[in-house]
Amino acid sequence: MDMDMSKNMERVMKDKQEGLEEWSTIIKPKTSVWNLYIKEIWAYRDLLILFVKRDIITVYKQTVLGPIWFFVQPILTTLVYIFVFGGIAGISTGGIPKPLFYLSGIILWNYFADCFTLTSDTFIKNQNIFGKVYFPRLILPLSIVVSGLIKLAIQFTLFIAFYVYYYFQSGIAPNYSAILILPYLLLLMAGLGLGFGLIFSSLTTKYRDLKFLIVFGVQLFMYATPIIYPMSSIGVTAKEILFYNPLTHIIEAFKYGFIGEGEFNGLGLVYSGVVTFIVLTSGILLFNRTEKSFMDTV
């Protein structure tokens, strides 16, 4: 009898200890939006890589041209721009050879636009997966940014090919020191695209109207960015307004570095950095908040 008693006591004690033991997962209604679970994202890094791989290899599967499509799209767009904006509208390219001017703008703009529009679709497009399995939701937008970057790198070789040609042909004077900040520029573009995309992806789960806004909003926004015209060709008031577009300084700095034309605005780049930080932070926080309950509203 005594034996049993002490055994029972032991078990009760043990159970109690187990109660105090660390739980590895605790799911609660409200966890802080500040919890970014970076550790968890790191644990899922293989998934991120596989998503990137999926995005890259499945885009042009069963097409005749395959990966060549990565080049066809910017080349054709450049041709159209040369014809419409350069030819018919007669907008100056600020002394830069037209193909180089439009191509650089298009490639960079496309990266931003892809990051933005594709991430803004995250919740709606992936609701099937999200409804069936859990992984840190941020993995998907991050994978979009990374696969966009790979696409950018591929298209950049096209730019380099043109660049080398014109370098010897018309003697471009690059500012090599400005080229060094290319990683910073890319970081800003990715951050802005991702940040805006996250904000809109969170909002579209509730208010679908925004989806339509995004489609033409991005198109319109391009005209508020010096893509088809150089900063040097516009008036003072317009310049002042464009200053507040964080993308302006990124595009201009890129052209200044590689082609030697364009306005390198140090203050502007700092401003862009600050805006990127704010947009990205609020995007992540909003996304974090939405991912916990979007399955109920989507």
Binding site: I27, K28, P29, F130, K132, Y134, S293, D296
Partner: peptide, 8 residues
């Protein structure tokens, strides 16, 4: 809820 797809 257990598989963290939506929160309680």
């Amino acid at each position: 809820l257990i598989s963290k797809i939506t929160s309680p």
